[in-house]
């Protein structure tokens, strides 16, 4: 599966469009992590637990989007965009969407 965030897949020709595909996930870290993040907030710096959370969520959102594209019979997703929202305190919502296409 080819994933791009431009209009086309460079070097290839889009022969068929299938419409939009989307993948999303809401994830939370256990309270131990929340507590450590609160402590880290005192001195600043990278919140490793939350970086990990964000990364896991992004990967899962991408995987879900890819699966939708596969179900449609596409072999590439172009013009992918990411969006986040804070539906819940301490939880991250990661959302990926793009256009499923077939390229040659």
């Amino acid at each position: 599966m080819i994933m791009t965030n431009v209009n086309t897949v460079p070097g290839k020709k889009i022969v068929e469009h299938f419409g939009i595909v989307q993948g999303s996930t809401v994830r939370a870290k256990h309270i131990g992590r929340d507590f450590m993040a609160g402590l880290k907030n005192l001195v600043g710096g990278e919140l490793k637990g939350y970086t990990e959370l964000l990364q896991d969520s992004r990967e899962e959102a991408m995987r879900r989007m890819e699966e939708q594209a596969q179900q449609m019979g596409a072999n590439a997703v172009v013009n992918i965009r990411f969006a986040t929202s804070s539906v819940a305190q301490g939880a991250a919502e990661l959302f990926a969407y793009g256009t499923a296409v077939r390229v040659e």
Binding site: A28, I31, V87, A88, Q89, A91, F95
Partner: peptide, 27 residues
Amino acid sequence: LAILRNIFGGRVKSYESLVDRARREAI
């Protein structure tokens, strides 16, 4: 469910349908 899930961490399943419904409805 989400409050409880926040204690243990992991996938907040109960909110997945909420955001899914909201986006599909908006589209």
